[in-house]
């Protein structure tokens, strides 16, 4: 994998915090101080359950959340040195779809059903790259071909409903790639797809990453999916990064009790343990109505002790490229020395 831990990151995110105001006058602390670096050609897996803040974090970076009720309270997101969170709206629009591409889970929700696929591909090419109508159309056809849509040229005239699910997801990917983004944010891009189509899409994205040095943020709820894809993984819980590591040490030596439970909840790949119960995590994810001043996982954690309910553990290094936010030392089986 194109691992480039040295050199300046393409995207550098520092301490992003996002809150939502609820109609009842309450506050939901959805993202509580997320930081990460993303290098060219790197794939970062962001893993968490629904409500863990993984999608909201990425939407915050591009200011794609309605404000209000959302409010980005703090943080910095440097894309090639330019802070996305401080940009003018006009400049921000140029970055979205230009330097940063987005793929969402449900392609039907992000394609406009009454415009032809060709129109939806051509338009950003003209605005972002300033191409002429003809040049943009040529490039649009080339993009559809790139993502493996047969008879690309003639399919530009078709509308989204004329494509199958897998083909629509490819159209979305073509749109996200239209302007050669530096960073591609993929939010559960394959969950709605069948296994053989998933394999095709994964293959395509891996190729683009190798050939163009595109950096990818891959958001998923399934630790199994990113094991074969990611260079580094960030596990999120309750709006925080609870563990961050290179992919091998995360799976070989998971440190956070939440990461460990997530891995144990997966059936064993060799089929062993059939008939046995899977380890499930008791309880429900937190509602995040309070300021994050204690460990968000403490109520569901088998190792929680007094300190976990009083102080929120920061991410602290436990290895070369491995950090965990936990007061309990999983290897030693005792609380960490203060």
């Amino acid at each position: 994998m194109a691992q480039a831990a040295n050199g300046r990151p393409v995207l550098s995110v520092r301490d992003v915090r996002t809150r939502f105001r609820t109609p009842g006058g309450g506050v939901v602390h959805a993202v509580n101080g997320i930081s990460f670096d993303l290098h060219a050609g790197e794939l970062l897996g962001v893993v968490g359950e629904s409500g863990s803040g993984k999608s909201v974090t990425m939407l915050s970076l591009l200011r794609l959340l309605p404000e209000p009720p959302a409010e980005i309270a703090a943080g910095q997101a440097l894309l090639e040195g330019e802070d996305l969170l401080a940009l003018e709206p006009a400049r921000l629009r140029r970055v979205r779809g230009g330097k940063v591409g987005f793929i969402f889970q449900d392609p039907m929700a992000s394609l406009n059903p009454v415009l032809s696929v060709g129109y939806q591909l051509v338009e950003p090419l003209r605005t972002h790259l300033g191409l002429s109508r003809r040049a943009a159309r040529r490039r649009a056809a080339a993009l559809l071909e790139l993502v493996g849509i047969p008879a690309a040229e003639s399919r530009l005239r078709d509308f989204p409903h004329q494509f199958s699910g897998g083909m629509r997801q490819r159209v979305m990917i073509a749109m996200a790639l239209a302007c050669d983004p530096k960073v591609l944010i993929a939010d559960e891009p394959t969950t709605a797809l069948d296994a053989t189509i998933q394999a095709q899409i994964l293959d395509l994205l891996q190729r683009l990453r190798r050939e163009r040095g595109m950096a990818i943020v891959w958001i998923t709820h399934d630790l199994g999916v990113v094991a074969g894809l990611a260079d580094r993984v960030m596990v999120m819980y309750g709006g925080q990064a609870v563990e961050r590591a290179d992919v091998r040490s995360l799976y070989a030596r998971p440190q956070h009790p939440y990461t460990r439970s997530l891995l144990r909840a997966l059936p064993r790949p060799d089929g062993g343990g059939r008939g046995e119960r899977l380890a499930s995590i008791p309880g429900q994810p937190p509602i995040l109505g309070r300021a994050p001043d204690s460990c968000p996982f403490a109520p569901r954690c088998a190792h929680a002790f007094a300190r976990c309910r009083e102080q929120n553990p920061p991410l602290a290094p436990v290895g070369a490229d491995h950090a965990v936010a936990c007061w309990f030392d999983a290897d030693a089986g005792v609380p960490r020395a203060a």
Partner: peptide, 27 residues
Amino acid sequence: RALLSAVPTHDPEREARRTRIILEGDV
């Protein structure tokens, strides 16, 4: 065989060695 080759295993070592059978086209 193609379906099984696409099943994720949550083991990076195993994933690095595996070969996915990529089927062409749609159903």
